[in-house]
């Protein structure tokens, strides 16, 4: 699923990465605990999270995630935006809660990380 489709399905605002909307996302992961993200997420997955602090971006960088979508209307801080730009990580925000965001993407065919082999 491309970023563009995700933006459409979740009604996202694109905070960082307007020029990378053709990026292909291979799986989804909804998580607020960064250790679990580090342990289970696959590269090229989309991270959906309600955790709005710089560690979300760091975790994405370390585990090679290209896209973070903040749920429930969380707006990233200037520092987070700067870090995401530097590390070339796209940031989206959606006003939907986690339940609805994961649900809609799953319904539209995005698979979970455990279903996808690198």
């Amino acid at each position: 699923m491309t970023l563009k489709e995700i933006v459409k399905i979740l009604g996202c605002q694109v905070v960082v990465g307007k020029e990378t909307l053709d990026t292909e996302v291979r799986a989804g992961c909804g998580c607020d605990l960064m250790s679990d993200v580090l342990a289970f997420i696959k590269p090229d997955a989309l991270l959906l999270t309600g955790l709005n602090n710089p560690q979300a971006v760091r975790t994405a960088e370390i585990s090679e995630i290209k896209v973070i979508c903040f749920v429930r209307g969380k707006q990233p801080s200037e520092a987070m935006i700067a870090l995401a730009r530097e590390k070339e990580i796209a940031i989206l925000t959606t006003s939907l809660p986690m339940f609805e965001a994961c649900g809609r993407l799953f319904k539209n065919g995005l698979i979970g990380c455990s279903e996808y082999d690198e």
């Binding site: 986690m98 339940f99 609805e100 994961c102 993407l105 979970g112």
Partner: peptide, 13 residues
Amino acid sequence: GLPTFQLVGKLYN
């Protein structure tokens, strides 16, 4: 045993 994304996907359905 499912991760959040898949469990929620099924629950949403």
